[in-house]
């Protein structure tokens, strides 16, 4: 690397210099761009059926139609367009559900870890009880109760996964709340709320971001599973899980219809996980200390 490039790298914060973070960010940004600009990016209307062009193969195979770069499905709908539109559902669920789970989990974790005592006991036991149900069972029960629909998928993910945030963050808050600087803030006249926001929260934010990114990957998978079984979006909205379900019947003579949405899910999840892992490695102060020390 040239000296100029090296000095340019030094200006960037540490987390921007990690290879994992950069690759993760690139993947996530691509998927998000697809979701945001789907109407302009997609070559076709995802629901437009061309019954004369059913089950066309993708462009690298013989018999492909340049109009449909990734081929068509059994109803002659453009796979590429459906994949691009499918990113919309995936990203909507990923972002809203992950933020929702984070907000619920983080608030309870901070209150429990900071106040301790009976509050901590109650919240921690609630998490224990919650976590004793297998997440798949719990989400299926919830979906049965709530009924199908994207909104309910989001709600189910929030209600199942807030415990992840709560348990991990609580132990972090517990460590920070015992620091003398937190006591010192109280002694100079900070209210409990201000102490939590100004002294404790800044120290837990790196962990929060990392968990958030991993939770988004989880949400993408959960949404795919639920749309595969038809519990998520209605049939007229393209979603990756739904595409897999649709392509099942033609698995032998048109495997690409199945493989492509799976790849989309896989790459998106990989992107979030790389981002989360990279952030954890660069933002976690304790990890940095052990590496340098």
């Amino acid at each position: 690397m040239s000296a100029a490039a090296a000095s340019a790298m030094r200006i960037l914060p540490a987390w921007m210099r990690s290879g994992r973070v950069i690759i993760g960010l690139l993947i996530v940004a691509t998927v998000v761009a697809c979701a945001l600009f789907a109407p302009w990016l997609a070559p076709h209307d995802p629901e437009e059926q061309d019954l004369l062009a059913q089950l066309l193969p993708p462009f690298w195979q013989s018999g492909a139609d340049p109009l449909y770069p990734l081929g068509t499905d059994a109803l002659g709908r453009c796979v590429l367009s459906r994949l691009i539109w499918g990113a919309r559902v995936a990203m909507t669920v990923a972002v809203i559900a992950a933020f929702g789970a984070m907000i619920l989990g983080a608030i309870l974790a901070h209150v429990a870890g900071y106040l301790g005592g009976a509050v901590d006991w109650t919240i921690s036991r609630a998490v224990d009880v919650w976590m004793s149900f297998p997440p798949v069972v719990l989400s299926l029960i919830l979906m049965t109760g709530l009924g199908a629909g994207v909104r309910n998928v989001i709600l189910a993910i929030i209600l199942v996964d807030w415990t992840r945030f709560c348990r991990v963050l609580r132990s972090e808050v517990l460590v920070i709340a015992r620091k003398d600087y937190v006591a010192a803030a109280r002694l100079v006249g900070f209210s409990h709320t201000r102490t939590l926001l100004r002294e404790v929260l800044p120290a837990t934010v790196p962990l929060l971001i990392t968990l958030l990114s991993i939770e988004m990957a989880v949400a993408v998978i959960v949404e795919a599973i639920l749309s595969y079984v038809g519990m998520s979006v209605e049939a007229n909205i393209p979603a990756w899980g739904q595409m897999i379900a649709d392509a099942r019947r033609e698995i032998h003579h048109a495997p690409w219809g199945l493989v492509l949405p799976i790849l989309a899910i896989l790459i998106t999840v990989l992107g979030f996980n790389l981002l989360g892992d990279g952030l954890r490695r660069t933002l976690d102060v304790r990890l940095n200390q052990t590496r340098e020390g």
Partner: peptide, 24 residues
């Protein structure tokens, strides 16, 4: 406090730490 390592918030600058009371 006894241990300045634990008593000073590592994310605040010195000026922000010593005048913390003014924030409250």
């Amino acid at each position: 406090f006894q241990d300045p390592q634990s008593a000073l918030n590592p994310r605040r600058r010195v000026a922000s730490i010593v005048t913390q009371a003014m924030e409250a």
